[in-house]
Design a protein around this nucleic acid. Sequence first.
DNA 1: CATGTCACTGCAAACGTTTCCAGTTTCTGG
DNA 2: CCAGAAACTGGAAACGTTTGCAGTGACATG
Lengths: 325, 325
Amino acid sequence: MSVSIKDVARAAGVSTSTVSRALGKGPVSAEVLRRVESAVLATGYRPNLAARQLRSQRSMAVGLIVADIRNPFFTQLSRAVEDAAYAAGMRVLLCNTDEDPAREAMYLELMAEERVSGLIMTPTRHLSPAALARVGRPVVLVDRAMPETDFDSIVLDNARASAELVDHLVASGRRRIAGLFGSTSATGMERRAEVEAALERHGLPARSALSLPSFDAGHAALAELLEREMPDALILSNGLFVRAALKLCHERRIAIPAQLALAGFDDEVWTDLVDPGITVIRQPVEEFGREAMQALLARIGAAKMRPRRVVLAGELIVRGSTAPV
Amino acid sequence: MSVSIKDVARAAGVSTSTVSRALGKGPVSAEVLRRVESAVLATGYRPNLAARQLRSQRSMAVGLIVADIRNPFFTQLSRAVEDAAYAAGMRVLLCNTDEDPAREAMYLELMAEERVSGLIMTPTRHLSPAALARVGRPVVLVDRAMPETDFDSIVLDNARASAELVDHLVASGRRRIAGLFGSTSATGMERRAEVEAALERHGLPARSALSLPSFDAGHAALAELLEREMPDALILSNGLFVRAALKLCHERRIAIPAQLALAGFDDEVWTDLVDPGITVIRQPVEEFGREAMQALLARIGAAKMRPRRVVLAGELIVRGSTAPV
DNA sequence: CATGTCACTGCAAACGTTTCCAGTTTCTGG
DNA sequence: CCAGAAACTGGAAACGTTTGCAGTGACATG
């Protein structure tokens, strides 16, 4: 049916071992190499990756587990990871957990079955390090990782970014600052803590809420938050929440920035298209992806290394949504 | 090293064949099934997918080749495909061509090597049917497909959508209607032809330009287009172009809809957050993905079927960007 | 000339499954 | 009670590679 290495060997008049070595990096004579190459062309041979993987016990595939690819942050991340992976001759298996620990666990299983050579993921808060270790492959955590984790991790400097946001809002005259943070991730928790700490440094009260990181959940949480006691500024811990906040302001005819200032994480494509533009922390997402892949390849190469943590700085982009009143 | 089916067989006191049947759907006694299941648990066995694929010649993976996952249309599409695929017990291999025929060809090669059991793709205009057939796997085209293609395809009713856009703009008083269309896809070509036909039916002149489907290229093309002769309405054949047009209007302080009406394809998340909201054709993207996967599975099941074409209707969503002046 | 080294090659054994085949037991109908 | 079918099981042969081992010559070194 399909043409195998045997057909190539026959066409080139050599053994299958020699073909294998000619295609790989084993030592072969120039003459044989030439014959094998033309035999490959003549027969239209394509190596069977399953056979190769079975024999060599290496898969040339990495897993990428994110919450939801439709979140632009993860979209960008995945694209960067794919590019880096293909450049290194590896393929990517993408999974969406929808922040559901059960799906997360299922996909970890699947990755183990696939014998991926490594794993990049944005874990939920509920994933135990033990479960992660049980996968038995190198793992790199991106965007979300407890500070004291045993795995390599690439994260934003959340302390600095949170402080910058708070400082900026205070400088622009806001005093009643509320925040909404993702409830499922270590990152959400971290940003909340850092925002509260920064507020405390200014001697201001902290009003923070948690929500599942989805547009609808965020929208509902914000509605409730604004209901209780109207703040004069809102800090949103991710792009979905920023969008939900903006939508809510439109619906309630809340004037930005006059009545309410808006600032958050993630510089999505539309943040400078709306009026006023939204003040955000831009995260170096592409760099997250590249660094993650690089860390993973290093880890695959040398399993025994102390876990490495890469902390990247965000960039505060000031727009009209936080203009002084 | 890793635990194989042999270990399970030994633990359960049966042969490997029986374990295989117990795990698959072969006939086994209840007693043996029980023993095998507990042996699997006890040993922590995970089937080796490479071995399974090698032996059974089936890969349980489908390829998905799109232009760029960062385009929200493809993001949504890929998510829908993934969901449908995982539901059917299949994995997805995602590739981004960036509209580059060379990369497209390379990924087709790769898919062949992977022995994917099927392929879903949004081809560039330059991909020859012959090259596609050479992959030797079932292929389903999504979003982009010549009407007379030999492959299954899922497409938008571009004729109707284009006519609706034109009719709406004319009804709202516009007469100098220009369009920008993606140059790399059959869809861009089709929409251009249909828009021009609709304009002709109204006895109006057609002014259309082509551009690579990226934000920057679209932005540049639009700048040039507006330079030459200012239209009173713009039709944009994809979400990137809509965004580029809006950005350009902001930069040039062109008033929407007073000076220029904006309408296009793809209802991205921000189209109702900007002011005025953008009039668009909403495409049933999730349905594209589901239908594509379903068609692919059908085709995998029965190779010999006449090619089937699914045409889905878009929905015109009228917003302020095309309000009558 | 003897010896060792080196570059190259082929043989054959894996890698972990599934599946064909044949064999054994148990059930069913007459 | 027998024949035949049906249900279940194990043995062994694949699937297409890579790779350890051993063998061949060629060539340099002493």
